[in-house]
Design a protein around this nucleic acid. Sequence first.
DNA 1: CTTTAGCACTCTTCTTATTTCAGTGCTAAT
DNA 2: ATTAGCACTGAAATAAGAAGAGTGCTAAAG
Lengths: 335, 335
Amino acid sequence: MDERKNNLLKEIVETYIKTVKPVGSKALCSKFNCSSATIRNEMAYLEELGYLEKNHISSGRIPSEKGYKYYVENLMEAEKLNGKDMLKLQTIFANNDLQLSDAITQCMEIISDITNYTSVVLGSNSKDNNLRQISIVTLSSTQIVAIVCTDKGHVENKTFTLKEGTDLKELLKVGDLVNRKLVGTPIDEVSERLELEIKPIIKKQIRQYETIYNIFYDAFNDFVSSNSNVHMSGRTKIFEQPEYNNVDEMKRLANKLEDMSFIKRIEANDYNDDEVKIYIGEENEFDSNVTIIRKKYMIDGEEKTIAIIGPKRMDYQRIVGILNYIDKEIEKRGE
Amino acid sequence: MDERKNNLLKEIVETYIKTVKPVGSKALCSKFNCSSATIRNEMAYLEELGYLEKNHISSGRIPSEKGYKYYVENLMEAEKLNGKDMLKLQTIFANNDLQLSDAITQCMEIISDITNYTSVVLGSNSKDNNLRQISIVTLSSTQIVAIVCTDKGHVENKTFTLKEGTDLKELLKVGDLVNRKLVGTPIDEVSERLELEIKPIIKKQIRQYETIYNIFYDAFNDFVSSNSNVHMSGRTKIFEQPEYNNVDEMKRLANKLEDMSFIKRIEANDYNDDEVKIYIGEENEFDSNVTIIRKKYMIDGEEKTIAIIGPKRMDYQRIVGILNYIDKEIEKRGE
DNA sequence: CTTTAGCACTCTTCTTATTTCAGTGCTAAT
DNA sequence: ATTAGCACTGAAATAAGAAGAGTGCTAAAG
């Protein structure tokens, strides 16, 4: 890979990102001061290495996933934030009355708007949350709400309709007991400790212990399986991208963007550093026909992942620039 | 409209619902024991009345919106629930451990699955909710969660990052004050009373009254504009319907199904009885190319609307049957 | 050894024409 | 009131052709 080959690949990737049309040899002559034949020779070589692909034998070249990856890792220039983009985001962060998490939400909205990509903010997994408090709010003699709050600030609630004659005082008493005994417990261990530590106690003291036990059990169980900790912006924006402008692709993507089991895959397992991470096509577990760029942040005391979902020929520079800019703004807030 | 004309219209509507293909005169001969010419005469008459339409001059007929409406109001037989449908729903309601609202959610999932329509459960408007309780949960010296709960069992929460040195005790004190003074207030009047009744008091007693006041103000304000009270199932199922099987329709619908300002229109203003209501095409405010069938229910003490969104040639009988069946099951529970 | 002009070849896309077919409206006869 | 018959319409499918962008390869030039 001599310098010209690098430049050529860079040029091809960047024009393809802009035009979405296979790049032919003629169009590149002027930029490289040589004939189309020379370009074709180089292209053939890049294709042999697996960086370029053809749709059919006589079409122009498009970057392969490997090509994008090489581009991102070796060729892409240090991202510089587009002035217009920055301006729009600045006005949001400038508003200091806004809670950080709200500012982020608004940001993602803007980003989806100006880029036509879909963006997701994923909160920390319920595993990393410990019980902070459970409150029982009574609505009537047969209706209550159980509200569970974790140390990361997640709140889940569930309304219960009780059997006529259930003793609310007993219910509240058990609530207090849970608060005294179980605060600090990881959310997904609460069920177990409820069974082992709370049940034996209330079995003796509480008449309708089974009904009441089930309420607490349900309240926590819903929490673990809940998905309230995901915020998506511009879910349909990605459909503006030409690669998805056909019925089958749209359906496929729309379905995945609805399905929590897919959304959860956006946050991968091997996730232990602070850099912007780029997952191109097959590299990501969400969908092999998209690229996901993501980064983690500390937002209002909680570790969150922001991910941008776009086509494989996503505007990498721009998105990396934006994500790093957000980082800076968050740091400013922290001071 | 003599009997034959009625039967003809009914037949046309029902075959079109099944086949999604314009209905020609020949296909109906055998059913009516007459020639296609006779059918054509009758069809021409029904078209003149506005019940039928043609795609082009020599195509078969499809029902117009007026035609569907006439069908629904005059021709459709008393809905009878399909046995298979009932069976699937029965098993859900049979599980008495399930809270009613959860059963409903599961139901909607099933309904979307078996019909390929989208379904929505809309909770009551925030206007109808009164403050039941606000809790302040402290997470750290600079982080708190404000949790607002209404008498209908809605819960909203918001995490706040406080300025270093904010007095948490004072914050909690104001929380108590709000609970003492404002419980029972309609949610959308809370802001006003906060300003008029709470602010003057804390202005005297609390040092950082402005910061603290803003927290409460924000917590309630978010509540009013929130949309957590909507649950949608099978958002993408409707795309299986052939009428939306093209890129433009899909985009249009997908956008509307994302947009709260459209979703809210599903629950109309003139909404004061218990019957199943059917809004065909232009009749509904959500989208002129769909039909919305909806009904209101009392679910866990709250009035909720269930709406099914499908094409104009929706299977009216089936959906009306299902919605009425749900009603019966809810009543059973109430006993 | 690298570059390039030239040319045959491939494949897509667009346009146009042709055919087929389902279905209609109208007329005149039953 | 019904129906057979027929001309007519428009959609959909198929085919054929032309244009165009782009390639690979060869042989000559630098």
